[in-house]
Design a protein around this nucleic acid. Structure first.
Lengths: 341, 341
DNA sequence: TACATATTTGCAATCGATTGCAAAAACACC
DNA sequence: GGTGTTTTTGCAATCGATTGCAAATATGTA
C-alpha cells in the first residue's frame, strides 16, 4: 500500500518542511489561529493527520508553562490507617476522570495523606498540576484555607465549614442526615445510633441533621448512641460489637457511609440481630453496591456522577481565572429493605 | 524573621547567579553528578533548599524527552456498560499508586474503554506516558499483542493466553478456580454454577480450574449452570433470578469476582433462598468488603497489594530497557461463612 | 497604474534543563 | 619550577512549540 518511504514527522519543523511553509504557520494552523488563511489551515491539518503527527505535549507545556493536568487528592481519615477501599471514591474518581477527559485534561492521582500545607504546596501534586481537586476535607479545613492563599486553583468536595475561603462543592449534608433520621423515626424507631467521624464538616452537618430530627420528635440524643469513628468498615463492625456487648438498647443506626452500613449489617447478623426487624440500618452515598447488598441498603443518594462534572467545571474555571461560586447538590433518600422499607 | 528581600529563584540560572557558578554546575550538583566537587555540591543543594527551589519538571522532561508518568488503563468489559465500581479496581489502583509514588513516578488514569490499537497507540494515554499498565485484558488480547509491537513499555495484569507477547502479571487463576470448586465439592455440593465472562483469559483459566475439579470428582459440568456474563453486580443478580425462575437445581455458585458474589447472595436472599444453607457462594479477589458482607464471603485471595508492586517494578524495568519476565502470584482460598465454612 | 489597507506568512527570541566538549584548576611527582 | 594527570567547571548547542513584530502578499480604490 504505502510505497512512499514514510518520513518521520516529529516536530512542527518537519511538517513545515514538507508543506513548504514556516513552522510558525504550522503552529498557528494546528491551533486554529484566525491569522492563517483558511485553505492553508485545512491543508496543514490534513497533512498532520496524514503523517500521524500530534503536537509534542511536553514541549508545548514547557513553552506555555502549563500542564493540562489536574491532581485529585483523596483526603484520608488520619485516624483510619486503611487505604481507601470505599467504592464511593472509585465512583467519584470515575466521574471526575470523565469530566477532565472531556476537556482534554489529564488526571494525576495523589496518594499520600496530607498533614502539612507547606509540604503540600511544595509537592508535585500541587506544583505539577494546574489545579487540584480534593475529595473530602478530613480534618484539614484550615490546611485547605491556607493552601488557597497560595493562589493555587483548588476545589474541594465536602461540607461547609466556618471561615471557609476555598471553593466548595458538596451535597446537602444537614438535609441528608435529617431525612435519614426522620425516615427512621416515622417507622417508629426511637433508639437511633449515629456512626461517623463528626469532626469532618460533612459528617458534622449530617450529625446536626440527625439531631434536628430527634429534637423535632421530642427525643433527646443519647451520647451512648453517638459513636465517633472513622468512616470505615472495621470501625463500624467494632462499634456494633461494643454496643451489643454493653447491652445498649438500640433499634436503628445511621451511618455516614454505605460501607459502614454494610459492615454494621454484617456485624449485627453475625451476632444474631435481625436487620431490619430488630435494628434498621441506613447508609450514605448510594454506591452501586447499596442496591445489591443483603439486605439492600436504604441510603442517602449523593449525585456522584454530577458531582464529578461540577468539580471539574469549577476547577477549570478557576484555572482560567474566573470567579467561581460554591455549589450544593441535592441529596435524596433512597428507600430499600435495610430499614424495613 | 526574613529581612532579606527574597529573590525569586525560578531557574537554574537564578540559582547559579546567586552562587556565582554556571548553571551547568548547578544542574549537575542537583542531579548528584560525580563530576562536581563534593563541597560545591553540598553548598548548592543547601542553597536550593534555602531558596525553596525545585527543578522545573516540564523543562526537564522536555529536554530529556521523558514524562515520568505511567498510565493505568482499566480494561472494562465491553459487554458491561457500567463504569467501574468494583472495589477490586480501587484497591489495585491504590497499590499501583503507592508503587509508582515510591519511585517518583506519576500516575495518569485512563478512562475510556479500549477497542482499537491504532486509537490507543496514538492516544495521550500511551504517548504521554513512559509506560502503561493495563489492569485486565478484557477480550483485547490481540490488541495488546499489537500494542507491544509498537515498542512501548507495557505490562498487563491478567491471565495467560496463547501467543502472548506482552509482559504479564497475574494470579494463579486455574488454581484459584480449582480450589474454590473443590472446596465446595468437599462440602458435599454437587450442582455448582459458574458465573463469569469466560472469554477473558483470567476467567477462562478459572473456568478450566472449575472443570478440572468437577472432572476429578467424577461430575460432568452442566451447561445450564455455566453462566457467561460480565463480572458485574447487575448481571449476577439477573443470572440468579433466571436460574431460580427456570427451576434449575443448584446448591452452589462460583463467581469470578467478589462483587458478583455479593450481588448473587443478595438476589438469593431476596428470593428466600438461604446462603449458605441452600446455596453456597464463593467469590474471587478478596476485596476488603468480602469479610464485612452478609454473610462474610469465602473467596480466592489475590495478593492485590503485592500485585501493584510487581506491576510497577515490571513496567519501570521495561522503561529502563531491561528484560522482564512475566510473574504469577499465588492465590489462596479464604474460607468464610458464605459457603458454610 | 499607483497607492493605501487588510491578510497572511516568516523571522527569531524564548521557555529551563541537560550534556559533549574544551578550558581551567588542582594535584602529583621529579 | 616544569610537566603530566586528574578533577572541576564553563561554554554553548539542543530539545519543540509559541508569539511579537516585521515583511510580504493580496485586496480595494482612485
Amino acid at each position: 500500500m504505502t510505497n512512499r518511504p514514510p518520513p518521520v514527522v516529529s516536530s512542527l519543523q518537519d511538517l513545515a518542511d514538507i508543506a513548504g511553509v514556516s513552522r510558525a504557520t504550522v503552529s498557528r494552523a494546528l491551533n486554529d489561529s484566525p491569522f492563517v488563511n483558511a485553505n492553508t489551515k485545512t491543508k496543514l491539518q490534513a497533512l498532520a493527520r496524514k503523517y500521524n503527527y500530534t503536537i509534542n505535549r511536553r514541549a508545548r507545556e514547557f513553552r506555555l508553562r502549563q500542564t493540562r493536568v489536574v491532581s485529585v487528592v483523596f483526603m484520608l481519615d488520619l485516624h483510619s490507617d486503611q487505604h481507601p477501599s470505599d467504592p464511593f471514591f472509585l465512583e467519584m474518581l470515575g466521574s471526575i476522570a470523565d469530566g477532565l477527559a472531556s476537556h482534554d485534561y489529564d488526571l494525576l492521582l495523589a496518594h499520600a495523606p496530607v498533614t502539612d500545607v507547606r509540604d503540600l504546596a511544595d509537592s508535585r501534586i500541587v506544583r505539577h498540576a494546574d489545579g487540584v481537586i480534593f475529595v473530602g476535607q478530613g480534618e484539614q479545613h484550615e490546611t485547605l484555607n491556607q493552601l488557597v492563599d497560595t493562589g493555587r486553583p483548588i476545589v474541594v468536595w465536602g461540607g461547609s465549614a466556618a471561615n471557609r475561603r476555598y471553593v466548595l462543592v458538596g451535597g446537602d449534608n444537614a438535609g441528608g442526615g435529617y431525612s435519614a433520621t426522620s425516615h427512621l423515626l416515622k417507622q417508629g424507631r426511637q433508639r437511633i445510633a449515629f456512626f461517623g467521624n463528626t469532626r469532618t464538616p460533612e459528617n458534622g452537618a449530617r450529625f446536626s441533621g440527625y439531631q434536628r430530627a430527634l429534637t423535632q420528635a421530642n427525643l433527646k440524643s443519647d451520647q451512648k448512641l453517638v459513636v465517633n469513628i472513622p468512616s470505615d468498615m472495621q470501625h463500624a463492625q467494632t462499634a456494633i460489637e461494643n454496643l451489643l456487648n454493653k447491652g445498649i438498647d438500640m433499634d436503628a443506626v445511621v451511618c455516614t457511609s454505605d460501607v459502614m452500613a454494610i459492615a454494621a449489617i454484617s456485624a449485627l447478623a453475625e451476632l444474631g440481630v435481625s436487620v431490619p426487624d430488630d435494628v434498621a440500618v441506613i447508609g450514605y452515598d448510594d454506591i452501586r453496591m447499596a442496591s445489591y447488598s443483603s439486605p439492600p441498603l436504604t441510603t442517602i443518594r449523593q449525585g456522584i456522577q454530577r458531582a464529578g462534572g461540577v468539580l471539574v467545571d469549577s476547577v477549570l474555571a478557576l484555572i482560567n481565572g474566573h470567579q467561581v461560586e460554591s455549589t450544593t447538590l441535592a441529596s435524596e433518600l433512597v428507600i430499600r429493605r435495610s430499614c424495613g422499607g
